[in-house]
């Protein structure tokens, strides 16, 4: 499969700040790729390196095999959905969507027809005459999407596009984006700090930390087998076990992660602790146990007995569920 986007040892430094630091990355054509990380981790800078709004300090970036280091943004066949949508307030929705075609010199008739097609793709058929200010957040988001897709880019970049929407709308848009990506067969590169969003939407994702990629893989890889403590902490609700606790639980002296779903409560065991918090989740109860200073969460399925706060309990798990991690 062709690589839609390829980073080769790419760095972007701002003075002494290493926003992106030696990133190697391959994004497969037609995939839904997420860049996940806390703010300041370099994920947005990576997106801007692809769109051309940032130039790499070193390293090579290729889009469909072509080196773009000397290519300005307007000549790159990629388009962006901006975080704040960046719709032009002085143009109506139709002209906003047709903008990319206008600057390329397409005649008014065809470009407005194409804009209408795009608006219907994002289910905004009758909104062409409105101004962006007259739209809701979700509708603006769709206009931004239509405007970016009208140029038929080879890669669509999305910079936290759902961040400003409320939960319900966000979930609806997640499904729609995913469906749209499948239908168009386009490569989507999606930046987010929301791990659930990244896990549920992406075919593969890169977890960023301090300008570097901490782990890259499928959502299952990253969720089940986090490579580092940071990934386990950031991505999951997984328990992160320090080396001495791992050893006490029968493993090697190494950092490890243990998913709450795989953690059970027992009457006896090598490690026990005090129940400090209970959270009822409907499908079960999340029990937090303080085991000698490390908090371990266990998920007790509905219908099973739940210990009281302050009770002492031991921890049990399937040995295969214990996942060892690197030192980072």
């Amino acid at each position: 499969m062709t690589a839609a986007v390829e980073f080769q040892n790419v760095s972007r430094h701002f003075g002494t700040v290493r926003a992106v630091d030696g990133v190697d990355l391959t994004i497969a054509e037609g995939s839904f790729f997420a860049m996940l990380g806390p703010s300041g981790s370099g994920k947005t800078t990576c997106l801007r390196l692809i769109s051309g709004f940032e130039k790499p300090t070193s390293g090579a970036i290729r889009i469909f095999g072509e080196d773009v280091s000397q290519t300005p943004p307007h000549l790159r066949n990629v388009n962006t959905v901006f975080q704040d949508y960046a719709l032009f307030p002085h143009m109506n929705v139709r002209d906003n969507v047709a903008y990319g075609l206008m600057v390329k010199g397409m005649a008014k008739g065809p470009r407005l027809r194409k804009a209408e097609e795009m608006l219907s793709l994002v289910k905004l058929d009758d909104y062409g005459d409105r101004k962006p200010a007259q739209l809701s957040g979700g509708q603006r988001q769709r206009v931004a999407l239509a405007r970016a897709l009208v140029n038929e880019p080879r890669v669509l970049l999305l910079d936290e596009p759902l961040g400003a929407l409320d939960l319900k709308l966000r979930e609806a848009m997640q499904d729609e984006l995913k469906a749209l990506q499948k239908r168009l067969g386009l490569t989507f590169v999606f930046v987010t700090h929301d791990q659930h969003e990244a896990l549920s939407m992406a075919d593969s994702l890169a977890v960023f930390n301090e300008g570097k990629i901490a782990q890259i893989g499928t959502p299952q890889d990253i969720y089940d087998r986090p490579a580092t403590r940071f990934v386990a902490d950031f991505v999951g609700s997984s328990n992160v076990l320090p080396p001495d606790l791992t050893r006490a639980l029968g493993g090697p002296s190494q950092w490890a992660s243990l998913r709450p779903e795989a953690t059970r409560l027992a009457t006896t065991g090598p490690v026990s602790g005090t129940v400090t918090a209970l959270r009822y989740l409907g499908s079960g109860t999340r029990v937090v146990i303080d085991a000698g200073g490390t908090e371990i969460a266990a998920l007790v399925p509905a219908g099973q007995p739940v210990p009281a706060e302050g009770a002492t309990t031991a921890i049990a798990f399937e040995p295969s569920a214990l996942h060892l991690m690197g030192t980072a």
Binding site: H74, D84, F88, Y99, R147
Partner: peptide, 17 residues
């Protein structure tokens, strides 16, 4: 906003456009 200018360039506009 700066993003407005970036959006314009992103969609293919030259400096004068």
């Amino acid at each position: 906003p700066n993003s407005m200018l970036e959006a314009s360039a992103d969609l293919g506009a030259t400096q004068s456009q």
